[in-house]
Amino acid sequence: MELVTDFFSGLGFPQWLAMASASALQIIAFLLVVALSVAFVVYGERKILGAMQRRQGPAMVGPFGLLQSFADLLKLMGKETIIPTQANRPVFVLAPILMLVMAFTAWAVIPVNAQWVIADINVGILYLFAISSMGVYGVIMAGWASNSRYAFLGGLRSASQMVSYEVSMGLIIVCVLLVAGSLNLSDIVMADRPVWVQIMLLPMLGVFLVSILAETNRCPFDLPEGESELSGGFMVEYSGVLFTLFFLSEYANMVLMSAMTTVLFLGGWLPPFGVEALAFVPGVIWFALKVCLILFFFIWVRGTLPRYRYDQLMRLGWKVFLPFTLLWVMVVAGSLLVFDALP
């Protein structure tokens, strides 16, 4: 941050303009990277799913089909945006925009390397949690504004699903906070975690991975879309650019959640398992690799598991995860206290 600001000050900018330009530059850089990564996540998903199902996946556009996503994007942009006559127009248009904005806003606090963060605020994790809990509004608004049964059902499902899983996600975050002793994401990455503490957080990682599947409406919890019974759920009425926004934000959310997992559990930009010899690789590469690992998990699960039934989903969230995470918060807090390992 200072580096970029100094650069602009060097150009003779006044202080406030230098800071503003630096922030703007950083934001644009982040946006570009995230948007590009989304394109390749889509490509990667199709390739990996193809490999899992013994097909080729996209192969025609560009070398190895690498440009497929861009072709799709162009195609979607070229389509007509249909807004149903009975739809609630402002809300209908606002919903996908809101969702995409939320998916991108959250990146403001994610540290991709030491000091590489737009806003190094001291309640970063709460900010992240707050923004990710806002994501539900896009879905629920879309479902309601479409004025269609299928879309509405999708919206309702999504609302209850996300609220349910946020509860246990919150408790998981509390566990991590107890260990790190800070709400700042960079501090959480840098926090000194003994091995036994890491082992204790392992079950939380498992629960967290499942919860982010539910939070992003991804398979096997993609009931809000539920193309087999709701024929697309909350986005059944969307087309053209608005649909593209939903599509983008779904994948942007996936990347975001992967980044969140990386920061909370996988040590962010630090080399894996604290191996000093690997420290020569830039932190941002490690960060990207870890994010890719989680993204692969997303796709792998999609290729493997059938969709959950709705009541099963709720049972898992309320009757399994919630009690378990609650218990685990106590276990973590208690053992940190007993072994005098509180930060």
Partner: peptide, 17 residues
């Protein structure tokens, strides 16, 4: 942040619901 998490993220969702 707590205001957003609790009121926007949970209470208002149920309201809207």
């Amino acid at each position: 942040m707590i205001l957003v998490i609790v009121y926007v993220g949970a209470v208002a969702v149920l309201f809207l619901f």
